[in-house]
Design a protein around this nucleic acid. Structure first.
Lengths: 182, 182
DNA sequence: TTTTCCATGTAACCAGTTACATGATTAT
DNA sequence: ATAATCATGTAACTGGTTACATGGAAAA
């Protein structure tokens, strides 16, 4: 059993909603949870076959004329058990991710003040852009999925991103003020 | 030149403040920027020697009786140039980090409602604890470093953590409400 | 007396991305 | 004509952690 590789569960989670080929899984992950989760083909394809050998999914090859074959994976009840078991487990601690932007800011005294100010202004713009994207998604989510049983959960993950991005926008304003006047 | 390995710059940044041994660098990184940056010995020691061969740092071995030898590294002016050059570069994009907590929440409909609620309550507690830690650090920072030229930058990185943690606390309240009533 | 601290170092491993190969089809 | 899409797959690489080895000193 892997220590930190959660790709398996991300794939099982997607397969719990519907059957997918490897190719579609990648796209589905990107569009549904792409703001906090990525998977590359180099991970997806080997692990899908692993799921089959472990009995957590089955595969059927679709042959369509004039198109490449598709291998469609379907979760098994054993796969659902494994997914549910993982979903019940607590996530331990907040993992410390490396933040290169903060690393540069921390050593900001080494370079002229306006260098850091410029970095923060760029960060500010990124956060505002991201926020607008999130607001658009929120509108779409409400319009198309507000009746889905998944809605409160999907809205929850989206709101997480929104609140974080709003906080970053505020921080940029506050910090630009401080660096300008001190 | 490495594509994403920034350990070199983290080490140069620390060395720009003062000379360090590998052992002390680890501790210094942990206590100064440990909330957004980690380094392990497996990275530190090889890269320190690499800094010396690249002329970015020099090393002197300290021999003290009854203690293990220490190898103390000092940044060179070339090392400072390299650091300053990196500090001026823009950080591109916000890297998407994997968030296992959100992954579980996204698939929350697969398990009973109280499972997700429990996860959020735990997350809430973690965020509140982290926030108290940050507030304590803020008090210490103000008391001991408010006159330092580094102060606005160090405060900036700390405030970033505070604002993010406050946002998470708010989100937990909002989301617990929504999941309880819907 | 057992654990922790000091201090350096490396081998083995794990996770993950990138870049490529293949080749037909469809859109620009 | 050129590029993008569909679709699977893998080898090579990079980044990073973990676990261990060494061994004396000081603290619990």
């Amino acid at each position: 059993m892997p220590l930190i590789n959660k790709t398996k569960y991300a794939l099982l989670g997607m397969l719990s909603k519907s059957s997918f080929s490897g190719y579609d899984l990648r796209k589905g992950i990107e569009s549904n949870i792409g703001h906090f989760w990525h998977e590359s083909y180099g991970q997806i394809y080997p692990i899908l076959r692993q799921l089959v050998t472990e009995g957590l999914a089955t595969s059927q090859t679709e042959t369509l004329p004039g198109r490449p074959n598709r291998i469609v994976y379907t979760i098994t009840s054993k796969g659902q058990d494994v997914l549910h078991c993982w979903l019940r487990e607590s996530t331990e601690g907040l993992p410390v991710e490396r933040n290169e932007f903060l690393l540069k800011l921390f050593f900001g005294h080494e370079v002229p003040r306006d260098v850091s100010i410029h970095h923060i202004q760029e960060h500010h713009q990124l956060a505002k852009d991201l926020l607008r994207t999130y607001y658009d998604i929120q509108t779409l989510l409400e319009a198309h999925h507000s009746a889905s049983p998944n809605y409160p959960f999907w809205l929850g993950t989206l709101r997480y991103g929104i609140i974080q991005a709003e906080a970053v926008v505020e921080w940029c304003q506050e910090t630009l003020d401080r660096l300008s006047q001190s």
